[in-house]
């Protein structure tokens, strides 16, 4: 069964499955240990390289298991982890498991334009006001009508020495918003890139060896970005295109990496995101098989009661009109052929002398005849008339 069409072949809303969008993606870390090599970390030795790609490799497939930052001798202790997802995803959650004590301050950001600009999704801190100038997140979500980046408690250190930073898109979103019908929620969950900024190690402020600030580092594994490939309800899966880029397998007459526009000939109504109630498929223009291109006209769409706004371009086979549904001047409909037949329109073929013009009746094919002339193409004298020698009055009354 095709998830994008029902048993009757009618389009229906379809979405790709929930995946870890970060799995296998390259992670850009602002700091990674091992250059230069030290006792525990050597970037040139696969057995001792704690590279950032360990954050997104399949669980249990890599050794060592954890990424480690370089040793941080003094403030600022900011380390940035950036994961380009390759295309837009609709986020559900983000999590990062720490292999050592989790930071006491971190920020989670997203980009919707492949890293050109960033907006925060949430903050995590033991001192929200001091670190981010924000109050701790209210228990019942944001106070405003839309989603917003709230400041949550910093991840708790676990008995094994690690910790988990976890964020759900619902955490920053008011209750009751519905993804189908809330453009602000759709915007909130959409991301092409995820960035985690670790800003304060757990032990910062401790001193050892007579007041000298100890060097600190971050160590983490399993960066997960749970989400669905964003296809706006018009695809059930994403595939790699010929250039190796992740892209939606668009259905419903849509195209683009996110199925966010109608295919060129499918512009009989404006593009819309599919919802659970309505697939909002892009409809092909009705051109009776005589045109390959069409354009959308909003005025016609409104006048039609929001049903059809497509206008066929370059009607072929001697047809004309918004839907290539009548014959162009100098041609008439052959009643023996269907409108979609390539030869549905026949040339008028009006007689150069007997006809008063070259344009015939588009329905009957009758040419306009001069006085005393008859026939569909005006090629004979009417009864009671005979041919003259004058091309101006080719038929005269019989004496």
């Amino acid at each position: 069964a095709d998830p994008c069409y029902d048993e009757a072949g009618e389009p229906r809303c379809c979405v790709p499955g929930l995946v870890n969008a970060a799995l296998g993606r390259e992670v850009l870390a602002s700091s990674t240990c091992g250059s230069p090599a030290n006792r525990v970390c050597d970037s040139s030795d696969p057995q001792r390289a704690h590279s950032a790609d360990l954050l997104t490799s399949a669980p249990g497939t890599a050794s060592p298991l954890c990424w480690r930052s370089d040793l941080l001798q003094r403030a600022p202790f900011n380390i940035t982890l950036t994961v380009p997802l390759g295309k837009a995803f609709e986020l559900v959650f983000v999590s990062l498991r720490f292999c050592s004590a989790p930071p006491t301050s971190a920020a989670l950001l997203k980009s919707q334009d492949h890293g050109r600009s960033w907006v925060p999704l949430g903050f995590f801190s033991s001192s929200c006001g001091l670190d981010y100038g924000r109050p701790p997140a209210p228990a019942d979500g944001p106070a405003g009508p839309g989603p917003e980046a709230l400041c949550f408690p910093a991840p708790q250190a676990q008995p094994d020495g690690g910790g988990l930073l976890a964020f759900s898109v619902q955490d920053g979103s008011p209750q009751g918003l519905d993804l189908d019908n809330s453009p602000v929620l759709q915007d909130w969950v959409t991301a092409t890139d995820i960035r985690i900024v670790l800003t304060r190690p757990a032990a910062q402020g401790d001193t050892r060896d007579g007041g000298v600030t100890a060097p600190y580092s971050y160590s983490a594994a399993e960066l997960q970005v749970g989400g669905r490939c964003k296809c706006n309800g018009h695809a059930s899966r994403c595939l790699l295109d010929t250039q190796g880029r992740l892209t939606c397998d668009c259905q419903h007459g849509t195209e683009g990496p996110d199925c966010s526009r109608c295919k060129p000939f499918y512009c009989d109504r404006p593009w819309q995101r599919a919802t659970g109630q309505e697939a909002h498929a892009c409809l092909a223009c009705s051109c009776n098989g005589h045109a390959r291109r069409c354009r959308f006209n909003m005025e016609l769409y409104r006048l039609s009661g929001r049903r059809s706004g497509g206008v066929c371009l370059n009607c072929r086979h001697n047809t004309a009109g918004r839907h290539c549904h009548y014959c162009r001047e100098g041609f008439y409909r052959d009643p023996g052929r269907t409108l979609s037949d390539r030869r549905a329109c026949r040339a008028c073929d009006c007689h150069p002398v007997g006809a008063a013009g070259k344009t015939c009746n588009q329905t009957t094919g009758q040419c306009p005849c001069k006085d005393g002339v008859t026939g569909l193409t005006c090629n004979r004298c009417a009864p009671g008339f005979q041919q003259s020698r004058s091309p101006v009055a080719p038929c005269v009354k019989t004496l």
């Binding site: 002398v353 026939g375 090629n379 004979r380 004298c381 008339f385 004058s390 091309p391 101006v392 038929c395």
Partner: peptide, 23 residues
């Protein structure tokens, strides 16, 4: 009664040269 089709050869184009269709 079916009349014959117009015979182009019978027309005199002397005064209507500019109207004469190309054959």
């Amino acid at each position: 009664e079916v009349m014959p089709t117009l015979d182009m050869a019978l027309f005199d184009w002397t005064d209507y040269e500019d109207l004469k269709p190309e054959v």
